[in-house]
């Protein structure tokens, strides 16, 4: 079946095949939401499981995510109504104020999008107020904060405090961050890598 073909092509990271299969599926009259959920996202779920089991690694995940993006670019414009219909939830992501590093944050975003979450990317050097504003505007369930420098870890504390009233869950990560630091500043969770960040997001959303 064509949805299985999409899924398999995505797992292989075959971008061109994903694109042609998605077009085929649309021609056959399949609903865009079915292509996303039962083709693309279910393929990325397999990728996530295999990554956790260390059967595959980041290069395979990234080519799969790239293939997913190529498929999404075709289907997304055809979705009727809000795109978030096909989303499991919304996550606001950003690197905290004073920190311009974005490699880790971008890997988390790739993995979250691949797992069906809608991600709002605040970029780098994002002040606490910017996160507060984004939470008001986008109503995310989870906010993810990233930092690479020990000097900007203090900004995480500020941002967590600023977000406290909104009730949104906050996860943090980045090279110098530890579980203990996350607990100390009152964050809801800590993820040491991009895949754990997805697991943590699910957990915080009660998705199991």
């Amino acid at each position: 079946m064509i949805l299985d073909e999409i899924k398999e092509a995505l797992i292989e990271g075959n971008k061109e095949k994903v694109k042609s299969c998605v077009r085929q599926a649309l021609d056959a009259g399949l609903a865009p939401s079915a292509i996303i959920n039962d083709g693309l996202i279910s393929g990325m779920q397999v990728i996530g499981v295999r990554f956790r089991n260390e059967e595959i690694f980041m290069p395979e995940v990234l080519v799969a995510a790239n293939a997913m993006q190529a498929g999404m670019n075709i289907v997304k414009p055809l979705l009727i109504g809000d795109v978030e219909i096909a989303s499991k939830g919304t996550v606001v992501m950003g690197t905290v104020k004073g920190d311009l590093h974005d490699i880790g944050k971008n890997l988390v975003i790739i993995m979250l999008q691949g797992s069906g979450f809608n991600v709002i990317d605040l970029g780098v050097d994002a002040a606490a107020e910017k996160f507060v504003e984004a939470v008001k505007q986008h109503r995310p369930q989870v906010v993810g904060l990233s930092a690479l420098l020990t000097t900007t870890m203090a900004q995480m504390k500020r941002t967590v405090e600023a977000l406290k009233q909104s009730g949104v869950k906050v996860m943090i990560g980045g090279a110098p961050i530890t579980k203990k630091f996350a607990d100390d500043i009152g964050a809801d969770g800590y993820a040491p890598d991009a895949v754990t960040a997805v697991d943590l997001t699910r957990e915080l959303l009660g998705l199991g």
């Binding site: 980041m58 290069p59 395979e60 990234l62 790239n66 490699i103 890997l107 790739i110």
Partner: peptide, 8 residues
């Protein structure tokens, strides 16, 4: 990200 994709 690009060089990791290049691996594949």
């Amino acid at each position: 990200v690009p060089i990791l994709r290049d691996i594949r």
